[in-house]
């Protein structure tokens, strides 16, 4: 069953390095395609690293694999993903007159697709 989360896309140093190495290289791609989930939510949902989930927002839908966020980094109920192609597909086009789509703190629902 789909569950609601708040998604925070953001920069990471790995993602930043990946830009310089090349956006079509594996390092960058794996960074921006991996969703961090709090250890508590991982456990509660029975997720392990590599499981595939679908995120759906008002703006779009993407599929990613999950990994547990480093200890303490992420509170339960919040998801993190490195800023990139996938995170931006979840933004809505509306900028509320600011020019800036809401790119952080996005409401998403998560469906578990495949367990590895």
């Amino acid at each position: 069953m789909a569950e609601s989360f708040i998604l925070i896309p953001g920069r990471t140093s790995e993602q930043g390095c990946g830009i310089s190495e090349g956006k079509f290289q594996e390092k960058y791609q794996s960074q921006i395609n991996t969703l961090q989930v709090s250890p508590g939510d991982m456990q509660r949902l029975g997720l392990i690293k590599g499981d595939r989930v679908r995120l759906t927002s008002e703006g779009g839908q993407v599929e990613v694999s999950v990994v547990s966020a480093p200890k303490d980094e992420l509170p339960d109920g919040i998801l993190f993903i490195a800023y990139g192609d996938l995170s931006c597909r979840l933004m809505s086009a509306d900028t509320h007159g600011s020019g800036m789509p809401t790119s952080k703190g996005i409401d998403v629902t998560m469906d578990i697709l495949a367990r590895s």
């Binding site: 086009a93 900028t95 509320h96 007159g97 600011s98 020019g99 800036m100 789509p101």
Partner: peptide
């Protein structure tokens, strides 16, 4: 005018 002439808006 942000929201009017900003690229994300002009394209979308």
């Amino acid at each position: 005018n942000p929201g009017e002439y900003t690229t994300s808006d002009v394209l979308s």
